[in-house]
């Protein structure tokens, strides 16, 4: 039982990073209909930006976080210009393929500048730990779930109660009527990409103190995020949040009770099952009456 709780906690930590990455991915898809395969690179670059700021420049963690957010916003701005504005009037496959291209370009750019060796963020926090009954978590891990809750909670509150949030949801539901209400597509697109990139970047930053970061780390992350988005229901941020935690816990349990080799496989099996039996996702539902 004690070990079970420890595995659960480990799963929640990793799942929290999935939530941050997947919520942004599902927002970009739901609002702009862009399938962004370069989303893992937002995570990877968040990790590198954080490591560079905190380790190379010795900035404190809050300042490093600000650097990560700034880098992510710039990245989101560029990605929007390329994948959305640049290709808006073309077939959707164009932006999918372009996002693959962007992913490869970013991976190689980092490979050239930072080198291929994996890096870990070193912080004082690593020497502290939190014990909750039988559960033991080093501080850098323990901080991730509460940070995720705060960030995602703030995001959902903003989507629900601010004009900008309402305009994003309106655009997701009916672009033409949103435009007739005076919502500017470009503004929504830039905000959405910046949000998505920042959520992923912050996840990459926090996880860089837990797992090594390397130029290709985004490959697996983006696939995990797609698993989460499909399980949660395409375009549903709340579904992505729930499914992200679920995937983290399932992976942790698989690794603990079955075999570690199945850890990265179980999510894909789950996706196949969801697509076969409940293609709208576990948390997706149909709202229209007619």
């Amino acid at each position: 039982m004690d070990l079970f709780l420890q595995y659960l906690a480990n799963g929640v930590v990793v799942g929290s990073s999935y939530v941050l990455v997947a919520v942004g991915l599902t927002l970009i898809f739901g609002i702009l209909h862009v399938v962004n395969f370069a989303h893992g690179e937002f995570y990877m670059l968040g990790g590198y930006a954080g490591i560079t700021a905190s380790t190379a420049f010795g900035l404190p963690l809050p300042a490093s976080l600000a650097v990560v957010a700034a880098v992510s916003c710039l990245l989101g701005l560029g990605a929007e210009a390329l994948l959305h504005r640049g290709l808006k009037n073309q077939d959707q496959t164009s932006s999918i393929i372009a996002s693959f291209g962007l992913a490869v370009a970013l991976q190689n750019a980092v490979m050239v500048t930072m080198g291929p060796q994996p890096e870990l963020m070193h912080t004082e926090l690593a020497y502290k730990a939190i014990e909750l009954g039988p559960v033991f978590l080093p501080a850098p891990r323990a901080l991730i779930p509460p940070a995720m809750l705060i960030i995602v909670g703030a995001l959902f509150a903003a989507l629900r109660w601010t004009w900008t949030g309402r305009s994003l949801r309106a655009m997701a539901q009916h672009e033409t009527v949103a435009r007739l209400c005076g919502v500017k597509v470009r503004r929504v697109a830039v905000i959405t990409f910046m949000l998505g990139a920042t959520l992923a970047g912050v996840a990459g930053f926090m996880m860089s103190a837990v797992y090594m970061v390397h130029p290709l780390v985004g490959n697996m992350i983006v696939l995990k995020a797609f698993i989460v988005v499909i399980i949660g229901g395409m375009g549903s941020p709340l579904g992505a949040a729930a499914a992200g935690l679920l995937l983290g816990v399932i992976e942790s349990m698989t690794s603990a009770y079955l075999t570690n080799g199945l850890r990265d496989v179980v999510g894909f099996l789950l996706v196949i099952a969801v697509l076969l039996f409940r293609p709208q996702g576990l948390f997706g539902r149909s709202l229209e009456r007619s």
Binding site: R166, R169, A170, Q173, H174, T176, V177, A178, L180, L287, E288, S290
Partner: peptide
């Protein structure tokens, strides 16, 4: 717009 053109999930 015609009545079906609304934000159904809001």
């Amino acid at each position: 717009p015609q009545g079906k053109e609304i934000f159904g999930g809001m």
